[in-house]
Structure formats: C-alpha cells, structure tokens
C-alpha cells in the first residue's frame, strides 16, 4: 500500500499561443490556480498534482465508492441513535440532571439566543444528516450500476457545499472541554448517545479522507460517455 507515487498532470502542451491543442473534454483546471492540465488516467493509489501551485488534483482509490456508501449509511444510523438516546448525566451531591444532544441545542432557547439554538442544531445534527443523506443519494446509482442523473450530481454538489458547515467533530471536542470543566465538581456518566456520537465522528473523519471527489465527479458525469 505504501507505493504511492506522485505523478504530475501533463500540463505543458495544453495550449500554444492561446490555441487549444486538446478537446475540452480532455482538459481539467486546477481548483486553486485555474491552470489547465490534460486529463490523464492516474494509476491506482497515485496522486496527481498541479504543475504550477502543487495542489492535489486527483487521488485515485479503486475501492472508494462502495466504502463511501457503507460509511455514510452507518454514520446516518449512528446520528439517529445519537439524537434519540441519553447523551450525558451529571450528578452533584445526590442531584442528577441528564441531557440529550438536542438538550444541548435547547440550552440556547432563551429569547435572545434562539437563533443560536437553530444554528447549533444545524451544525451538529441537521447539516451532518443532510450531508450524509446527500452522499448516499449521490453514490447509490454508482454502486447499483444505474445511470446517474441530474439529481445525483446536485446531491453530491450539496454534500460538497455542506462540508465546512457540518461540525460534529468540533462538537465532540467541545464536549470534552466541558467535561474537564465540571470533572472536579460532579460525577459524569456517559449515555449510549455519547458513544454513538464519538463513533460517528471517527467514521466522518475516515469518510472525508477516503472519498476521492474527483473520481466521484467523473463517475457521476454521464455527458462524456
């Protein structure tokens, strides 16, 4: 597995004096600096970099798409579990109070901070769920060998747009900090939702490093066939 080569894209003779040497279908532009490169098939496990700015343009992983689907399905189920079960319990001197993930969201339900309740609900529950749903919808036709359509490409585009706004992993770090703050004063017990959420964060991390967005886009692209 450690034979990862670094193959640059062929970029030199794409155009001479503003005159294109290749048909549009065979061109790909660097997402960071707009430099044109000729689309070439990169050997499995290799990376192709932009000749000008060095941005990674293609990383191929042959097993990616099936894994992406199973990870997304598992994460979706875990998120449902994480919002349905008790998350944390706290007790100080015989008094106990528990919270669910949605309880943490509702902490901001006072009038002045109500918009924040909606935002936090979005960041930690609804946007991650929507993103997982969009990934599942987008890769389903690829796994079942059906022709992907406009809907599936829109779905993957949505998943890409939502990426910075789903903050489940940041939430779990926030929870750890909060627990350290109360650790000396109270006893904490973890509910099933805590473990579901933690596992979800680990899976999301794998999902995002595993997914090769360029391969997914090329697989979803039916116009070139």
């Amino acid at each position: 597995m450690e034979t990862r080569q670094q193959t640059p894209y062929i970029g030199i003779t794409v155009a001479i004096g503003g005159q294109l040497m290749l048909p549009l279908e065979n061109l790909v532009a660097c997402p960071q600096c707009d430099t044109l490169h000729a689309q070439t098939d990169v050997p499995d496990g290799a990376k192709a970099h932009c000749m000008r700015c060095g941005a990674a343009m293609v990383e191929t992983r042959s097993t990616a798409i099936t894994n992406v689907l199973s990870l997304a399905l598992t994460s979706f189920v875990l998120m449902i579990a994480a919002v349905s079960f008790p998350f944390l319990d706290l007790s100080i001197g015989g008094q106990t109070n528990g919270t669910s993930v949605l309880g943490a969201v509702m902490a901001f339900s006072d009038t002045f901070s109500l918009p924040l309740a909606f935002a936090v609900a979005g960041f930690i529950v609804f946007l991650p769920l929507l993103r997982l749903g969009a990934i599942i919808a987008a890769v389903l036709p690829l796994v079942t060998h059906r022709t992907p359509g406009r809907f599936h490409r829109h779905a993957f585009g949505l998943a890409e747009t939502l990426r910075p706004w789903s903050m489940a992993e940041i939430f779990i770090v926030g929870v750890s900090v909060a627990l350290v703050k109360v650790a000396g004063l109270a006893t904490i017990s973890f509910g099933p939702a805590f473990w579901a959420f933690t596992l979800l964060v680990i899976l999301t991390f794998f999902q995002d490093t595993l997914i090769c967005r360029y391969s997914v886009w090329r697989a979803l692209d039916t116009s070139r066939a």
Binding site: L88, L90, I92, G93, Q95, T96, N97, T99, G103, A104, V105, M106, A107, F108, D110, F112, S113, P115, L116, V120, F123, I124, M167, I170, F171, V173, G174, V175, V177, A178, K181, V182, L185, A186
Partner: peptide, 29 residues
C-alpha cells in the same frame, strides 16, 4: 466554534436548581 459548544453542553448539563446552574451569556451569540 468549540467554545460555543462548550457553553451549550455546560448550560444543558448543569441545571441543578438548588445546587448549581449554568446559563449562556450574550457573548455566545
């Protein structure tokens, strides 16, 4: 965003009316 989540979880968890309670301040928003 970490600190906002810290405030959220502390405010949800520490609600023991007679012993201790934590609530979000306006800075969180």
């Amino acid at each position: 965003m970490i600190d906002v989540f810290v405030v959220a979880i502390l405010s949800a968890l520490v609600q023991l009316d007679t012993v201790a309670s934590i609530n979000p301040g306006i800075a969180a928003v």
